[in-house]
């Protein structure tokens, strides 16, 4: 399942995004770097305010600017830097080469346009599919995401569909132009578990069929355990740990990942003690000059307050941003 040898489709370097709010500057994303290989399933895990959505929305400049501002960074998609692209050229990328699925299908579909129109809209904009074939392509797409009786759904309006159906339509819209990358922002959070299982099944299936690279943003470590290749854990606007899915769940290196996995109740375990991560997530009003997790960390020592740890490669392609080596109970990097 690993795509280590596959070419990179997206490379993000040192991305920094902030929001100028009434209460002060919010440093939402503070120097995020990662890459995405072709056909890879990358999970981005974090709590609300960790910067996971803002990171991905910054790439396509989907944040409101102002108050938002992308201060620095690169997002290399093939030969082009998405952050430097003219807005008209960026439109070709959005919904064309990079598809986006939002959390709430009720607010991201237009309530006064039919499903058929919304499906063909991106085809009209981004491809030169002849008008006659548009309808057939729309039917194929609806069929692809497992909605029964596809032809009769084209004239439906979003309110006539259930939540799960709407999310399938969103997926179909995002896939309409055969994107190389699909970014899904909490696509199953608003859905019930049985419907979530249906959607996950569809995404798995589509990956095999189409080979699209997927970035799946979620707060739920359970959802991505079964489908992701690699996981980025975000906290306080930074990536704190990056590892292949098996390594991350089996042997978390960052104290936050460690605590988070311990605080999750599991369906398959009884009488389990839940770990308390004390305190609350940071508010990000100040640019982090120390480790953002330090106030909540059980392993904290003086260096953590003095300097923000960089994300550094440790072993078998894993990366962690922490001054402390949990396993060997000593400072990392020999300092």
């Amino acid at each position: 399942m690993t795509q280590e040898t596959a070419p990179t489709v997206l490379e993000v370097k040192d991305l920094m995004t902030q929001f100028d709010t009434q209460d002060g500057m919010v440093h939402a994303v503070n120097g995020v770097s990662f890459d995405l290989k072709r056909g890879e399933f990358l999970a981005v895990v974090g709590e609300s305010g960790s910067g996971k959505s803002v990171t991905m929305m910054s790439l396509l400049r989907l944040i409101d600017m102002p108050p938002g501002e992308i201060v620095s960074g690169e997002a290399n998609f093939g030969e082009t830097d998405l952050l430097q692209l003219e807005i008209d050229d960026l439109r070709d990328v959005r919904g064309g080469k990079i598809g986006f699925i939002f959390q709430d299908p009720m607010t991201s579909l237009n309530p006064v346009l039919t499903v058929g129109f919304q499906l063909t809209e991106s085809l009209r904009l981004h491809t030169d599919t002849p008008e006659k074939q548009l309808e057939q392509r729309a039917i194929d797409l609806i069929d692809l995401v497992g909605i029964p009786d596809a032809a009769s759904r084209l004239d439906n309006y979003p309110h006539e569909l259930s939540g799960g159906m709407r999310q399938r339509v969103m997926i179909a819209v995002a896939l309409a132009c055969d994107p190389q990358v699909l970014i899904a922002d909490e696509p199953t959070t608003a859905l019930d578990v049985t419907i979530q299982a249906q959607i996950i099944e569809i995404i798995k299936d589509l990956r095999e069929k189409l080979g699209t690279a997927v970035i799946w943003i979620t707060h739920d470590l359970g959802v991505v355990a079964g489908i992701a290749d690699r996981v980025l854990v975000m906290y306080g606007g930074q990536i704190v740990e990056e590892a292949l899915v098996g390594d991350l769940y089996g042997d978390p290196k960052h104290p936050y990942t460690h605590g988070l996995l311990g605080s999750l109740p599991r369906l398959d375990q009884k009488g389990q003690e839940l770990v308390n991560i004390k305190g609350q997530p940071p508010n990000l009003y100040e640019f982090p000059s120390s480790c953002p997790f330090a106030p909540r960390c059980p392993y904290v020592y003086d260096k953590c307050h003095a300097e923000n740890p960089p994300l550094i490669a440790i072993e078998n392609g894993r990366k962690v941003a922490c001054w402390w080596d949990i396993e060997n109970e000593r400072p990392r990097f020999g300092s």
């Binding site: 259930s162 939540g163 799960g164 159906m165 019930d192 578990v193 049985t194 419907i195 979530q196 299982a197 249906q198 996950i200 099944e201 739920d220 470590l221 359970g222 959802v223 355990a225 079964g226 489908i227 992701a228 899915v245 098996g246 769940y249 089996g250 996995l261 999750l264 599991r266 369906l267 398959d268």
Partner: peptide, 27 residues
């Protein structure tokens, strides 16, 4: 049975071998 099988477990080793009952349709 279907409801329990739909709940993901935060463990890729277990997830890889779990049998899932996928329910058709909505409530």
């Amino acid at each position: 049975q279907a409801l329990l099988s739909a709940v993901p477990v935060p463990d890729p080793v277990i997830e890889a071998t779990r049998e899932r009952v996928i329910l058709e349709g909505d409530i």
